[in-house]
Design a binder for these strands. Sequence first.
DNA 1: CTGAAAGCGCTTACAG
DNA 2: CTGAAAGCGCTTACAG
Lengths: 324, 324
Amino acid sequence: MAVTSADVARASGVSRTTVSYVLNATPGVTISDATRARVLETAARLGYAPSAAARTLRAGRSDLVLAVLPDWPIGPVLDDLLEQLADVLAERGLAMLVHHGRGTRPMAALWRAVQPRTVVAFAELAESDLRALAQAGIQVVDASGGAHETGEDAQAHIGRLQVEHLAAGGRRRIGWAGTTDARLAEFAARRLEGVAGACAGLGLEPPVACDLDLTAASAERAVRAWRAAGVDAVAAYNDEVGLAVLAGVRAAGLAVPDDVAVIGVDDVPVAAFACPPLSSVDQAIGRHAAYLAACTLAVLDGGPAPAPPGDLHTVVARASSAAR
Amino acid sequence: MAVTSADVARASGVSRTTVSYVLNATPGVTISDATRARVLETAARLGYAPSAAARTLRAGRSDLVLAVLPDWPIGPVLDDLLEQLADVLAERGLAMLVHHGRGTRPMAALWRAVQPRTVVAFAELAESDLRALAQAGIQVVDASGGAHETGEDAQAHIGRLQVEHLAAGGRRRIGWAGTTDARLAEFAARRLEGVAGACAGLGLEPPVACDLDLTAASAERAVRAWRAAGVDAVAAYNDEVGLAVLAGVRAAGLAVPDDVAVIGVDDVPVAAFACPPLSSVDQAIGRHAAYLAACTLAVLDGGPAPAPPGDLHTVVARASSAAR
DNA sequence: CTGAAAGCGCTTACAG
DNA sequence: CTGAAAGCGCTTACAG
């Protein structure tokens, strides 16, 4: 049914070898212009596209890049990042296969089955998987955003930025608004560490941590707890949680930023529309994506690793964290 | 390097045929329990996983399901849907390959290269692609959300629900808040059609359409235009746009819902935290995803198509569209 | 400059 | 109950 290289060969009166040489522009072989033109024309006319399966079997590796996602929900940030990465890879003729780390079947089976060219790991991989990948010669791009160029954990760095901004605005007692989503727990813990570290560094008391789900009731409860502890500023896990906090403060009859300042993370468009507009930490996702794409290409080409993009995180100050 | 079925055969002292029979539990062949146990144990011990490429080449089709996304940004709704679909497929040993319809290379090359088991099309496919897929025996699941069970276009249906809700609250002059994102144009047009149709059906004047980007300035401009036309209610393309409208109304010194009512689409968590809380149209994405997964499995198994899930869309009424 | 042949790893008639 | 052999579509030494 499908047209194969043999069909193209037959139709253009040459061997499959020649077809392969022409279509892959194999370096080191010279094909007469007439033959080349004829093969190309025939291939186009027949709508020939080489079988990925056969190529993979032959080459021992596919044209697939496997993106291993963590078990947590993909927010708009990671979403953008994946899209941009897929675009860059597509330009190189590579398709991106997205795998949610649901643990449904062992990673080992997956990468063995798919024989990806590269694995881009947004989640930390198990030791055994890393060993196995290394042994199979599949290189791994670490996109878990672990280390920051300051040597600090990148997530902790974000938490630190939040606290430093709040403290610069005259706030002295910091609350932390985490999330009850268990899948985000590990991630949130790293943020909270940064928050706690920054408080310690600034001589503030340790942060008062509350986990919210995205309901008004849970936000109100958190606000009461913070209030009881004398909290005058809240660092939120992300903008969604931050907006929940704004609503909770309102519901408790208090005012932002007069009673409590709030800052989120991600700087989603909606943050600017809140009342009051929500301060946030921008993650410069475009530059991050470009860097990640460059890393992936470097791994593919065996080239040198690109220079890290410098600091990607900046505080976007809005009314919700105005200085008092 | 990688362990093959030949390795397993050698290590367990049988032929590759037997290994294949045991591992695939091929129906119609009987293998002695001793042999079966030995092969299974050996395969596990060696960490054997069959090569997807070889299987695909042999079978003429892969264990991949190709999800063809439209060119528009993936919102939280589609995002959820994809994740759930991927989970269901994973349980069946199928991996989902996501392809953004960027038109970077012709679809034809992609499906030919990948030989997917099924294509789940979230965007409408070109005639030529549909023909080619049919010819290659690759079935297509239409997930573009085109037809609604009422016979109405599903997107138009959502627009209708918005207008009917606003009109039921005593609003007489409807504004439409679209998006300047060109990738969403076609989608938004179908919504607007539903809005216009509902207005006509209710004897209201045609909607006053404005396209917004997600900035306060553009929202303010739109609000002024609506105001000049006497608009007292706005149906927004989605909750993000709806929240921008809320901010624009505030910036114009007007009040929601007293001067203008607003309703979005998607019912994202943040909608409930707005001031005032934003009304929305819930898309019951979980049920939609389940239906889509069932359709995909039905196609894979050649079974009958599952019953459509009934009406998935419901208005979530909040303060932003309170009756006047 | 071009072609015949081998082999990637799998499954499945076909023999025994 | 088990094995030897062919073939899926490709690429690449190796001959000519």
